[in-house]
Design a protein around this nucleic acid. Structure first.
Lengths: 143, 143
DNA sequence: GGCTAGATTTGACCCTGTCCAATCTGGCCG
DNA sequence: CGGCCAGATTGGACAGGGTCAAATCTAGCC
């Protein structure tokens, strides 16, 4: 359903269905938390390749898709920006301090934990982003 | 008391008390969430000034102090790293999407909210970092 | 007053990302 | 079906933020 819908998804979001955008969406399938570089590599094309996307193009696409909420961007401290297809479910992340591995953690919603800062200091809050830092099983083992 | 204790703090943390380290600590007093550039400017010295600290020196100091837990480093998405003196109280942050302003939010501790991801996927978690995103009162007003 | 491990400096360098101007193309229209 | 044009993409220069490595300096102990 992906090939079919990629274009639809884009068009429904008010974006033109272009080769580059479809390639980026495809490159993210099954590879959450990818960096721009990984997406570029996986999109199957280096700079200058015929069907390739330029660096600027890649960033444009990522920004467009993010704004259209087709993908989500996360930026854990110390890491370049990473992108994933899961959107709209307010899930959070678990990051290994050693190897950088990232795991998704579903939000214990209902009462989304911490969705309300106790004191919002006059801010209109629209998102609570939670990052858990620790060491993954593999890294703990080999330490 | 700062001049007096800055050195003590450092020594107690097992670090030598140097002009640069004391200057960085002083520059953070009353200025939480400062970037490296702001600290450098506030430390009263540009590059090459007699009592100045070099760029590398600044980063070394920041890293040393962070590791010694005398300061804390936060890196909100889209912002360069920021440093603050509050440590050990596991407080969180509220960030304005428009002007970038950052406010501290005390952790509703006791049961630190969300300290346990529901599923920790084998990770040994040692920190839960929460960032609330929104728009501050000022920016909402002028929009 | 020396010594030495630890701290600092200098300057080159890298990665991630952005700006801008020129070119190309999806997809609607006649 | 061919043309049009706003929207998309490209290329190349550039910038911010940070790191690396080697040489020099200095806090603090003897």
């Amino acid at each position: 359903m992906e090939q079919q819908t990629a274009g639809d998804l884009l068009r429904r979001a008010g974006l033109r269905s272009t080769t580059q955008r479809r390639a980026v969406l495809a490159a993210l399938q099954g590879h959450p938390h990818s960096t721009a570089a990984e997406i570029e590599a996986r999109a199957g094309i280096g700079r200058g390749s015929a069907s390739g996307l330029s660096r600027q193009g890649l960033y444009n696409v990522l920004e467009d898709l993010t704004r259209a909420e087709l993908i989500r961007c996360i930026e854990p401290a110390g890491s370049p920006a990473r992108y994933e297809l899961r959107v709209g479910d307010n899930h959070h992340h678990l990051v290994c301090r050693v190897c950088g591995r990232i795991e998704d953690v579903d939000c214990t919603v209902g009462r989304a934990p911490c969705l309300d800062p106790v004191e919002s200091k006059g801010f209109t809050v629209d998102e609570a982003e939670i990052t858990w830092w620790g060491v993954c099983a593999d890294c703990r083992g080999s330490a």
